[in-house]
């Protein structure tokens, strides 16, 4: 079983988000970057599958050299080798094209990603990779099992879940529940230093979109406090003032 796991480098979940004064770029100063949490779930499931079925787990990241710390972390968690496509991941189609290009010749049985990255929240890359490769995809999957050349997945849908079966190869995007992320141990951290990390230059591929400007959500007005012994006053405000019930 050859598994490719796509990881992205995102601001830590506790990071306060701010932008440069002109609003044109994310202000990275003082921000710690982590492996996108959903990608980490995908990586863990990939390692579990490798442990039960044999094979290998390769991680791929489209990013500049500063993402290598997190690529090494993925190797420490247990991936066998890594590929970094040396480019700024500014557009989903561009990123998906780079990964699809690598995957075309890689002979992977399974390509896993997180359900979305927690920075741009596009949920675009996995579906685009699948379409570029002409293979099935299952999004927001909470469970993944393999039986021979068939995979069975559970994906979240509105108000429930759907069981989907698909032949290999396929792309799936991971949601919480697919696996519990692992913490790298000392042996993993030591061995990660010498595992192969190949750097390739990007293929010429267009970027369809540009994130041109950012802003913070509008600030809330001060919170109106209601006495704890009179919740009925809350209902009154929700009805007469907020007009939502």
């Amino acid at each position: 079983m050859k598994i490719l796991v796509c990881i992205s480098n995102v601001p830590d979940t506790t990071a306060r988000i701010s932008f440069t004064p002109d609003g044109k770029a994310f202000n990275t100063s003082g921000v710690q970057f982590i492996i996108n949490p959903y990608d980490e779930i995908a990586l863990t499931r990939a390692l579990e599958l490798k442990e039960s079925l044999g094979g290998s787990v390769t991680v791929i990241n489209v990013g500049k050299p500063d993402t290598e710390a997190n690529i090494r972390k993925a190797l420490a968690i247990g991936a066998d080798d890594a590929i970094r496509v040396n480019a700024d991941p500014s557009d989903a189609y561009f990123v998906a094209s780079q990964i699809a290009h690598v995957a075309k010749t890689g002979g992977y049985d399974i390509i896993l990603t997180g359900k979305e990255s927690i920075d741009y929240n596009g949920s675009q890359v996995p579906g685009m990779i699948a379409e570029l490769l002409g293979i099935p995809s299952v999004s927001v999957a909470t469970k993944l099992t393999i039986d021979g050349t068939t995979a069975t997945l559970e994906r979240e849908i509105d108000g429930g879940k759907e069981i989907v079966t698909t032949p290999l190869p396929f792309v799936a995007s991971a949601q919480k529940g697919m696996a519990e992320p692992r913490i790298p141990n000392m042996r993993g951290i030591m061995s990660a230093r010498t595992k192969p990390l190949a750097v390739t230059e990007p293929q010429g591929s267009p970027a369809f979109t540009v994130n041109e400007k950012y802003e913070l959500p509008p600030a809330k007005a001060a919170c109106k406090m209601i006495p704890a012994d009179n919740p009925a006053a809350l209902i009154d405000l929700l009805h007469n003032e907020a007009k939502i019930i």
Binding site: I17, T209, V210, Y214, E215
Partner: peptide, 18 residues
């Protein structure tokens, strides 16, 4: 251009479609 949520709801961004 179109406005969307980003940074998991911590920000908004304007996306230019080219």
């Amino acid at each position: 251009t179109v406005k969307k949520k980003s940074f998991s709801g911590k920000a908004l961004s304007e996306v230019v479609c080219n």
